[in-house]
Simulated scan of single mutants.
Amino acid sequence: MSIPLLISILSGAVAITVSIIGAWFANRNSIILQTRKLKEEHYVAFLEALHNLASDNQSTKYGKEYTYARDKLLLIASEDVIKMMILFEAEVRDQNNLHDECLTELIKSIRKDLRLRDKSFPIVGLRK
């Protein structure tokens, strides 16, 4: 086997390997970005439903929207977000004074899951 033929075969093998690895990384990054976008959409829908429910907690429509948004979060949210959501709901149900702190922790865990950085996130609360 001649040296130019060997170099051509090696070059072809390297080119194929590089293209396979590049395609794998591109697909992986695409899936990560799509998942992040889906999470963001579900988080925004959840916060909208929470806002609507807080502004009119007697509305069955808003209650259903909140339940639906919450159920979708159970599929896509991180474990930390789900724990904070359950803690927040328990504080609201028990009408404790920790409501705003729990909402703040829920929002912070959502932001962390979306890879947003916070240095000193303020205490937030629902306002009518």
Rank of each mutant, 00 (worst) to 15 (best):
I31R: 09
L10S: 02
P122W: 01
L114Q: 03
N57M: 02
L33Q: 13
C102L: 10
R36Y: 03
S19Q: 02
R117V: 14
L50Q: 09
D80A: 15
L6D: 07
L116H: 10
I7D: 00
S120P: 01
H42E: 11
F46R: 04
E65N: 14
R93I: 06
L75E: 13
D94L: 10
A26M: 07
D94K: 11
D113W: 01
I20K: 10
S11H: 00
S2W: 00
K119I: 06
L87M: 14
I107M: 12
N52Y: 05
G63T: 08
A15K: 01
S8A: 13
D100G: 06
Y43K: 08
L126Y: 03
K112P: 04
I16N: 00
K112D: 13
A77G: 11
I32S: 09
A26K: 08
D94H: 02
E91G: 09
F46V: 02
K61V: 13
K128S: 06
S11W: 01
D113E: 05
G125T: 03
A26Q: 06
P122K: 04
R127K: 15
Q34E: 12
N27I: 11
F25R: 06
L126R: 05
A23Q: 08
K61Q: 14
S120G: 09
L116M: 11
L103D: 06
L75V: 12
A69K: 07
T67H: 08
Q95S: 15
A49L: 06
W24K: 07
N96E: 08
K128T: 03
L75T: 14
S78I: 11
F46W: 12
A26N: 03
A13P: 00
K64H: 12
L5D: 05
